[in-house]
Computed example of a mutant assay.
Amino acid sequence: MSTPVEAIEPTPVAEPNRKPRRPWTSSVTTVGLPVLSVIAFLALWQVAAASGTWSETFVPFPSTVWHAFVNTMTTHDGVRGYQGYLLWEHLYMTLRRVLVGVIIGVGLGVILGLAMGSVTWLRSLLEPWLTFLRALPPLAYFFLLVIWLGIDEAPKITLLALAALPPAAVATTAAVVAAPVGLVEAARALGASRAQVIRDVVVPSALPETFTGIRLSVGMAYSSVVAAELFNGIPGIGGMVKDASNYNNTPVVLVGIFAIGFSGLIIDGLLRAAERRAVPWRGKV
C-alpha cells in the first residue's frame, strides 16, 4: 500500500526591496507643483514690470491687475463693475453663449461623425467640406455671419457652433472607422441589425475618442469667443476685453483673459471627470 505523499508547500520567494509608496508624495506633485509654477510666474511678472523695460501700459504690475479685478467685481465710486456689469455677469453671458454653441456644434458633429464613419460614400462627399471649415479661422467668416444674421446673439452662437463642429465630427468619424472589426462581425453573426451594431458596438468603442473631440470642440469655441463678441458683446468677457483694448486698459484685458483661461480649466476638468464616469473602460481594453 502506497504511503500518501505530503503536500510540499512552495518556498515563498522573497520580493525585491520596494520603497513604500508615500501618499503625500503624489499630493505634493499634484498640488505643490502647480502652486509653485504660479508663484514663479507671478515673481517673474513682478520682476519684468519693476525692471522698467516696458511701459506699465504694456506690462502692468500684478497688484494693478488685482485692483482691476476687484473693481470689475464690485461697485466703486458709483461705477458698477465694467460698463455697468460685474465680472461674473460678463462671464455668465460668455459661458451661456459658449454652452449653447457647443451643444449645437457638438451635437451636429457627433451625428455627422457617426454617419460619415458608417457610410463610406457620405464620408467621401462631406470630408472635404469639413476640412475646409476646420481650416478657416472663425474671424474670417464672422463678418459674413454679421451681414446675414445681424449683431445680436445669432451670429455669436452660430460662430461658436461652427468652431465646435469640426473637432467633434472628425474625432467621431475616426473612432467609428476604427471600431473593432471582429466585434462588429461577431455582432452581425449573432443576428444584430445595423442599428444594434452601431448602438452596442460602434458607439461604445467610439466614445473615448468622441470625448476627446468634445474637449477639443470646447477649446475651439473658447478660442473663438473674443471674435464672437466683437460686435454687441457686452455683457460678455470677449466684449469686455475688446472694449478695454480700445482704451489701452491692459489690466482689464488681463482680467478678462484670466477669467476665460481659469473658467476653461474648470470646464475641462469637469469634462475629464464626466469622461472617467461615462467611459470607465478607456485604456483598459
Rank of each mutant, 00 (worst) to 15 (best):
A179K: 15
V181M: 11
I267T: 04
V100P: 02
T25H: 09
P20S: 05
V47Q: 07
A195V: 14
M240P: 15
A187H: 05
L270G: 04
S224I: 07
L265W: 08
A43N: 03
P128E: 09
T53H: 08
P280K: 13
P138I: 00
P4T: 11
F69E: 01
A244Q: 11
G182K: 14
L144Q: 12
T29S: 07
P180C: 12
G117V: 08
S245Y: 04
A274S: 06
L126C: 03
G239E: 04
L108A: 05
L112S: 14
V253I: 15
S118N: 07
T158C: 06
S63L: 08
G219D: 04
E209I: 01
S124E: 05
A278L: 13
R123D: 15
A171L: 01
A171H: 08
W121V: 12
A168L: 01
V170K: 02
V253M: 12
R194A: 15
G81W: 00
P34A: 12
V35Q: 00
L125M: 12
R199M: 08
L95G: 01
T75C: 03
P12N: 04
A274Q: 04
R80L: 07
T212C: 06
F143C: 00
G52A: 07
L133A: 01
Q196S: 09
T120L: 10
T210K: 07
R96I: 05
L108V: 12
A164R: 01
I260W: 04
P180E: 13
R272Q: 07
M93A: 15
A154S: 07
V47R: 09
L133F: 01
T11S: 15
L130H: 00
L122I: 12
D77Q: 06
T158G: 03
D243S: 10
F262C: 03
V176K: 02
L190D: 14
V285T: 15
Y82P: 13
A227S: 09
P180A: 10
Y92C: 06
L207K: 04
F142D: 05
